[in-house]
Amino acid sequence: MPVIIVAGPTASGKSALALDLAREFNGVIINADSMQVYRELRVLSARPDDAELSRAPHRLYGVLSGRQACSAGKWREMALAEIAACHAAGQLPIVTGGTGMYLNALTNGIAPIPDIDKSIREIITAELAALGHDAFFARLQKDDPATAATLDSANTQRLIRAAEVLRATGHGLAHWHGAAMLPPPNGMAFLKFCYMPPRDILYDRCNKRFDLMIKQGAIDEVKFLLSQTLPPESPVMKAVGVRELASYLAGELSLAEAKALAQRETRRYAKRQLTWFRHQMTDRETIDTQYSESLEGKLRNLVHQFLLTAPK
């Protein structure tokens, strides 16, 4: 069963390619971006606009509330259901996004970590606030040294995740990652395209994209988010641009300062994505040139050949 993957860092141009392939090959675009799953983040996550949505079917965009946490396991379950529906309807699934953890879970399998009740995360988050970051990390080092040794101590979300898994299951993340993996889907074949533009071009696109987001209503989107009184640890509150524009709305930054900080964070995020794809998605067809008519023809030929040989 064939599946196309169109990956790449933010602002790289992958969405346009996915849309062209969907129109050419009777495809359905399935989101693999961890922020685009949230309905409250249409502008700041650069979700497809109405014109793009009208050109091809799109799935898993804006399907979750910001009060929900979407893990790689949860996304994988939703994506597999959408892929199966595509195949049953005779359509080509085109999985598109820049969240490497999600794509890896789909193509290579995932550790079988049980679902964690939301109440446990709330307790762990309160403990972090009470103890302070350093003491919380020191406790994790004592309780689960194998996992703590693999973590960036500055990454609060990863620390909370490690602590909640340990609390809920009695085993740390290192234990679960060493367990037998849930395998990749049986019978699926993947053709992976990865957009990797030169860094200077990518950074310029990142800067221009955030300018466009401001014009499209990013400030009002953040105002609405703040009115929902979501927990600070909610993934939507960690999205690039939310914290910076919230500081502007609070009078702590000028709009120019908030925009410059958000653009810097977008560039840093894109750099991390480039690094991940370069080292983790090695079985890819790399696209590092401007999208053109000749490139479009080459990519279509690759898809045609893939569809002729992929198991049905």
Rank of each mutant, 00 (worst) to 15 (best):
residue 4 I to P: 03
residue 6 V to R: 01
residue 13 G to R: 07
residue 21 L to C: 09
residue 29 I to Q: 07
residue 34 S to G: 13
residue 37 V to H: 08
residue 38 Y to C: 03
residue 40 E to K: 05
residue 40 E to H: 00
residue 42 R to L: 13
residue 43 V to H: 14
residue 43 V to K: 09
residue 44 L to Q: 15
residue 46 A to P: 05
residue 46 A to M: 10
residue 50 D to A: 12
residue 56 A to I: 08
residue 60 L to V: 08
residue 64 L to G: 05
residue 65 S to I: 06
residue 67 R to H: 12
residue 69 A to F: 06
residue 70 C to G: 04
residue 71 S to M: 07
residue 74 K to P: 07
residue 74 K to D: 06
residue 75 W to I: 02
residue 78 M to P: 06
residue 79 A to S: 07
residue 80 L to C: 04
residue 87 H to I: 01
residue 90 G to W: 08
residue 90 G to E: 05
residue 92 L to D: 01
residue 98 G to L: 09
residue 99 T to L: 12
residue 102 Y to M: 14
residue 104 N to M: 10
residue 108 N to F: 15
residue 111 A to Q: 06
residue 115 D to K: 12
residue 119 S to R: 10
residue 120 I to Q: 14
residue 120 I to T: 11
residue 121 R to G: 12
residue 122 E to N: 09
residue 126 A to Y: 04
residue 126 A to Q: 15
residue 127 E to F: 08
residue 129 A to C: 02
residue 132 G to V: 11
residue 145 P to S: 06
residue 145 P to E: 01
residue 145 P to V: 00
residue 146 A to N: 03
residue 149 A to L: 01
residue 156 T to G: 00
residue 159 L to D: 02
residue 159 L to E: 04
residue 166 L to Y: 03
residue 167 R to K: 11
residue 173 L to E: 10
residue 174 A to H: 13
residue 180 A to S: 09
residue 180 A to C: 03
residue 181 M to D: 06
residue 182 L to I: 14
residue 182 L to F: 10
residue 190 F to C: 02
residue 192 K to S: 07
residue 192 K to H: 14
residue 195 Y to V: 08
residue 197 P to N: 10
residue 197 P to S: 03
residue 202 L to N: 11
residue 206 C to Y: 02
residue 210 F to L: 13
residue 213 M to V: 03
residue 216 Q to K: 15
residue 219 I to W: 11
residue 220 D to K: 11
residue 221 E to R: 04
residue 222 V to H: 01
residue 224 F to D: 04
residue 226 L to C: 05
residue 237 M to K: 05
residue 239 A to G: 02
residue 241 G to W: 15
residue 243 R to Y: 07
residue 250 A to H: 08
residue 261 L to F: 06
residue 268 R to E: 12
residue 268 R to T: 10
residue 268 R to M: 03
residue 270 A to R: 12
residue 274 L to A: 14
residue 280 Q to S: 13
residue 284 R to V: 09
residue 286 T to V: 13
residue 287 I to V: 11
residue 291 Y to H: 01
residue 292 S to G: 02
residue 298 K to T: 02
residue 299 L to D: 01
residue 300 R to A: 00
residue 302 L to N: 02
residue 302 L to G: 00
residue 307 L to F: 04
